[in-house]
């Protein structure tokens, strides 16, 4: 087991190196006119350095004066020390900006994941136990509609109905107009109030996938021999479903949920952008659109790490949870 984990970890590190190299290469491959445009733009801001100074700074700070490989090595050396440089767009160290926004995203994602699990798994089980009946059809259609809903359209609809027509929520932002006058509890409530629509959006958009996954796996288990045996023994249907079948369905579910845990940190780019939630998604979106290379490099690397971590956790959990899986 330990050997397997170590092997996977080493492989992940190798992949991470290759991914960051690829991203770095891509960033470098962006035509230099892009950098020049930014330098020109920056030099035109009041009280800024001159264009030449900016060019020099930009090329030097990211090793653009060296070759791609050398530049990458110098970037990687700093990155290992968790030094990702200063964000051009936010003009603070990248990691500092990151620390100030990540928890908003995490809270939002965690809450919506909780609701997602709490709603999707029971519905998935109901669908599987009533296969091809009306409940199953309705749930399947809802699931597939959730998958098909474009986030931005759904968010706009929610805004139209609940913010504009009913006036229950604000259109944008994380805090209300009179946030500063509120006491601590009021501030908390105000923030929670502004989180409602984004969380509803996230839950509805992501619920379909888990629901279908639960249904498929549950169906597979329900067709297994040991379920037939249990039924033949005369075990009550309730017990068959919740003791025999569901526990076995948990194996793939735990694996996939465990694998998506790192994703809680990745933020929801579109949702945050649409609702003006100051999380990592919106922050990185603004940075990327503004051509903030240090922040973009950091964000892409961070996302790659999260993906790798997710895969790793899923693989390890799979081996841990399912006693039938033996890893040499």
């Amino acid at each position: 087991m330990r050997k397997y984990v170590i092997k996977r970890l080493l492989l992940s590190v190798l992949i991470l190196v290759l991914v960051t190299l690829l991203i770095y290469g891509l960033m470098r491959a962006l035509p230099t006119s892009y950098i020049e445009a930014i330098a020109r733009q920056k030099s035109q801001q009041p009280g800024s350095r001159s264009y030449e100074e900016w060019m020099e700074l930009l090329t030097a700070s990211y090793g653009f004066d060296k070759g791609i490989l050398a530049g990458y090595l110098s970037w990687a050396k700093e990155a290992l020390k968790l030094n990702f440089g200063d964000s051009w767009f936010y003009t603070v160290p990248v990691t500092e900006k990151f620390n100030s926004v990540i928890w908003t995203s995490f809270t939002m994602s965690a809450i919506s994941m909780f609701f997602e699990i709490a709603i999707a798994i029971p519905l998935g089980i109901i669908a599987a136990t009533h296969q091809y009946q009306r409940a199953d059809n309705i749930i399947s259609v809802i699931a597939i509609a959730g998958i098909s809903l474009p986030t931005f359209f759904f968010a706009s609809l929610l805004k139209l109905v609940f913010s504009v027509k009913l006036g229950w929520f604000d259109l944008y932002g994380m805090i209300g107009r009179n946030y500063e006058q509120l006491d601590a509890f009021g501030k908390f409530l105000d923030k929670a109030h502004h989180m409602v629509l984004p969380i509803v959006t996230l839950v509805v958009i992501s619920i379909g996938g888990l629901m279908r996954y639960t249904r498929t796996n549950m169906l597979e288990v329900m067709n297994a021999d040991y379920i037939r045996t249990a039924r033949a023994k005369g075990v009550s249907e309730k017990k068959v479903i919740y003791h025999h079948a569901f526990r076995n369905t948990l194996i793939p579910l735990v694996t996939i949920i465990g694998g998506s845990l790192p994703g809680l940190f990745s933020g929801a780019q579109i949702t945050e952008t649409l609702y003006g939630i100051q999380g990592i998604g919106l922050t990185s979106f603004n940075a990327m659109v503004a051509g903030d290379i240090p922040f973009s490099m950091f964000y892409l690397t961070f996302m790659a790490v999260l993906t790798l971590l997710g895969n790793l956790i899923a693989d390890i959990l799979y081996a841990v949870v399912d006693p039938r899986v033996r890893i040499a």
Binding site: I15, L16, V19, L26, F285, M288, S296, L300, M303
Partner: peptide
């Protein structure tokens, strides 16, 4: 490697 490249952010950039 390609699987790990975050595609949406990359396309945005």
């Amino acid at each position: 490697v390609f699987y790990c490249v975050p595609s949406l952010p990359l396309i945005i950039i």
